[in-house]
Design a protein around this nucleic acid. Structure first.
Lengths: 335, 335
DNA sequence: TTGAAAGCGCTAACAA
DNA sequence: TTGTTAGCGCTTTCAA
């Protein structure tokens, strides 16, 4: 609802003394435009303050000039988890200078999936980045049928054939945590694992267990959370009841780890003296706990960047391969 | 880039045995369509899985069917602050069932403002909700010129004439905190105020100071932050140096308050025994600190809901008045 | 209550 | 290298 009629390409063409077609070519940097026309059009564009009409362009190009970031989680979950937040921020930032708009589609499995599916089928978007993927979300049907360029952030559970993904090496990240704790002399090690219907949850647990067994230690002390803060607290409670003698816990996300630390400390148990704690993600919160949290770095910014790059490549018709990023451990004082 | 051609209105019309015009009317619930045609069209729509093409509709209606949520802050700030997060989540949720898309436009004052301004001028959106507003952001120029329906969340600093806003009563909220602390017998009271180029920052400080003076107490103990976590920590440090004898601090945001609490506790000072702490916002984090944070409730969900309602009203040509919501205090154990 | 026809602003054949 | 022309899918006069 602009105040006055916005200048159209027709206006630009008239002012530059060329046809609308030439103006269009100039605006779209088509090489077969004379230098002179190019300059004239550019001048007219800036004098008039011309901006292409997105809808008109979409209509003929059959492109929306937007990508969807899909998060199959409840809205409040998405914003409560710093991992998503950082992910979204990075993706947005990466696309800040391009004309591509970022659309955020969230929704829990319930009605949410339908909404998301409808959305992806609607042709409102040229591509999708799917961020948190559970085994049963099953977006692969839509994705394949619509042939919509898409990339997963986080390996899809069942390995969605033909749809690339970017992920960190979750298994070796968890192993890093295990080795670090073992090297400290901890012997009664537990883990609060993530949801097992997500590759990140399953892979971290697998890496952890393997490393423990390799060291000849018991890998049986496991409780499960869903990466949320409250689930971390509950899991920690259960762990403390089951194995009061444990001396180290690897928690599969910082969000859960922070809650777990509160849980431990509220019982008067000292961190790291009595129980060492290691998290995963290296979110901002990891630096704010007392003691600050030792954690496995999840390079969110790079993950986001690579995902955007892959998607762009696909949207340009290229074919791409999955990307695996390595992690490392930040040693702070919690363990 | 759909796999096959999506059904168009033409297809629907053909199948329903009516003209495209009638099909259009039926789809848009125009009353002057015979019952019989209406039914036929509805059937064709669902059989074909027809979805109106957004771009085509936009082109003729000159409406984008989207609203922008504008946050004039750096991307990482937006996501690091639970207040924004909750705000965005609530707005998105409110619009979940409508065809209106939510576009998120962020950007710091530097290049960001230009981007945002260009964006609002581009006609890409039918309305805007501006969430965090600083004195010098000066979006009012664009807003007035473009006559774009807009509403501020948080009273704009200088009272942007003609553009409505929704806000909590920040002054009385801060007074609530003051009275609560005073009633406890605290006498050496300080505050970590928010940025003074935002109404929320200025109003909370004013309300606090007034309440202190009304009780005959010194209102001079003030340090400033910018609502961010790190600024809260620094402000607390300064306060502790300036006035080692203080016995209560009102912190103008939970994000700052949590950091301030860590700062206090890391010096071995007991909360609330030696220093009482009261925050503002009642974000999730307020429940996670030890001790849990007493804080002033900022009803984000309602704020968001009212903002959306106002905006919709304006987009329908209605005129609206600013809305002020009342706050209350949650007493937990930090103060 | 309906249909025919025009046109939103743009891009892309096609012809020159 | 350029202009003419058609047409993307939709809504909306205008006439019937």
């Amino acid at each position: 609802m602009p105040a006055r009629r916005l200048p159209t390409l027709e206006d630009v063409a008239a002012r530059a003394g060329v046809s609308r077609a030439t103006a269009s070519r100039a605006v779209n940097l088509d090489p077969r435009v004379r230098q002179q026309s190019r300059v004239a059009v550019a001048a007219a564009v800036s004098e008039l303050g011309y901006r292409p009409n997105r809808a008109a362009r979409s209509l003929v190009n059959r492109e929306a000039d937007s990508i969807a970031v899909v998060v199959p989680e409840a809205e409040d979950r998405v914003f409560a988890d710093p991992f998503f937040a950082a992910m979204l921020a990075s993706i947005t930032q990466r696309l800040a200078d391009s004309p591509v708009q970022v659309l955020l589609a969230m929704g829990q499995p319930g009605d949410g999936r339908q909404k998301i599916e409808r959305y992806l089928r609607g042709g409102y978007t040229d591509g999708a980045i799917i961020v948190s993927h559970h085994r049963d979300d099953d977006l692969s049907g839509v994705l394949h049928e619509t042939k919509l360029p898409a990339v997963y952030v986080g390996r899809p559970y069942a390995g969605d054939v033909g749809i690339p993904w970017v992920d960190v090496d979750n298994g070796s990240g968890a192993a890093l945590a295990a080795e670090h704790l073992i090297a400290q002399g901890r012997r009664r090690l537990a883990t609060i694992a993530g949801p097992q219907d997500m590759a990140a949850g399953a892979d971290r647990l697998a890496g952890w267990s393997t490393a423990l067994r390799a060291a000849g230690l018991d890998a049986g002390l496991v409780e499960y959370g869903d990466f949320s803060s409250s689930s971390g607290a509950t899991a920690m409670q259960r762990l403390l009841e089951t194995a009061p003698d444990l001396d180290a816990v690897f928690v599969a996300s910082d969000l859960m780890a922070v809650a777990a630390m509160h849980e431990v400390q509220s019982r008067g148990i000292a961190v790291p003296e009595q129980i060492a704690l290691v998290g995963f993600d290296d979110t901002h919160a990891a630096q704010l706990t007392r003691p600050p949290l030792t954690t496995v770095i999840n390079p969110v910014g790079e993950l986001a960047g690579r995902a955007v790059d892959l998607l762009m490549e696909m949207m340009n018709g290229g074919s791409v391969e999955p990307v695996v990023l390595q992690t490392s451990l930040v040693r702070r004082t919690s363990g």
